[in-house]
């Protein structure tokens, strides 16, 4: 690959990295796993003056649950770390379900969760799970840290809310107040394909009643689609009966903004969204019954 000329920096501390970004005046780009940025460099869609490689900064590679069950994901946690995580399966089932569907096994060894959310690809899987789960991004800049709700962070296709001198250091995802349930389904043409349509559903269950429902979609609009209100409106305070599931699926499908292309018509993609919402919810209802 023959990208445009760039300078390369590999700082070993966050402070140093932020200083470089600050000096660059917006000409620099952070390099995390490189699985989105490097292809863009190759195609010369991106031509930053400086690459700031954050892979040598210690302390960003961990993910953990704190005492109240909040999940923290450091900026260098790879997709693969979450795929093989022993801590998220019960607490954050939506993320756990998506982990093995992001990209392919090779990409998953390098690509980072936080980098994926920063990249704000409308087809990106992680942003959808974050939106469905009510997550936040912690940004750090010259003036310290701030927390940004992911819905205000992922602004549009390939645009996020970071200032040029800020680094996303962590993603934070709250726990359920009752039992966490969730799922992620993705229609892809091949392993490693971006979503033709995908659905993230996240439920906070109190007994067999839905306390809060979250949902987001990827691949069916010009950005990650926030379907939280749609699903919550249909399910909050209710049980997962076939009728309620149907209503939720319809409400979410109405939020999709798909476009026809070589992967399928807009109608087809909307139909897939609906099918996936009801499949995820039916699976949850089914497993509830089994557990009962």
């Amino acid at each position: 690959m023959y990208p445009s000329r760039f300078a390369y920096e590999a700082p070993t501390s966050l402070a140093e990295a932020i200083a470089i970004l600050d000096r660059s005046g917006g000409e620099a780009k952070i390099l995390a796993g490189g699985q989105s940025l490097v292809p863009m460099l190759k195609l010369r869609f991106a031509a930053p003056g400086t690459l700031v490689d954050i892979n040598n900064i210690p302390g960003l590679g961990e993910h953990w649950l704190d005492k109240d069950g909040t999940l923290h994901i450091g900026a260098l946690v790879r997709h693969e770390d979450l795929e093989y995580s022993t801590v998220i399966a019960d607490s954050h089932p939506t993320l756990a379900a998506a982990a093995e569907l992001v990209a392919d096994p090779i990409v998953r060894t390098r690509g980072t969760f936080v980098g994926s959310v920063c990249h704000a690809d409308p087809q990106g899987d992680w942003a959808a799970t974050m939106v469905a789960s009510g997550g936040q991004i912690i940004a750090q800049g010259p003036n310290g840290r701030r927390a940004i709700d992911v819905r205000e962070f992922v602004l549009g296709p390939f645009t996020n809310a970071l200032a040029y001198n800020e680094i996303a250091v962590e993603a934070v995802i709250p726990p359920a107040t009752g039992t966490a349930k969730g799922g992620y389904l993705k229609l892809e043409r091949r392993v490693g394909d971006f979503a033709t349509a995908s659905v993230a559903v996240n439920l906070d269950m109190h007994g067999d009643t839905v306390h809060r429902a979250g949902c987001a979609l990827a691949g069916v609009g010009g950005r990650t689609i926030d379907a939280n209100d749609a699903i919550n409106g249909a399910l909050k305070g209710k049980t997962l009966t076939p009728e309620n599931i149907e209503a939720a699926a319809d409400a979410v499908a109405a939020m999709a903004e798909p476009r026809s292309d070589h992967r399928g018509s807009a109608d087809y993609k909307r139909h897939i969204v609906k099918t996936f919402v009801s499949r995820i919810l039916s699976n949850i209802a089914h497993s509830e019954q089994k557990a009962a």
Partner: peptide, 25 residues
């Protein structure tokens, strides 16, 4: 035989042609 084509055939019982151009919105 992409899923969308197979699904369309199932829904309509009609043949699905692959002749370009594809519609890209």
């Amino acid at each position: 035989l992409q899923p969308n084509r197979v699904f369309e055939a199932l829904q309509t019982g009609q043949d699905v042609s692959g002749m370009p151009p594809v519609k890209v919105e």
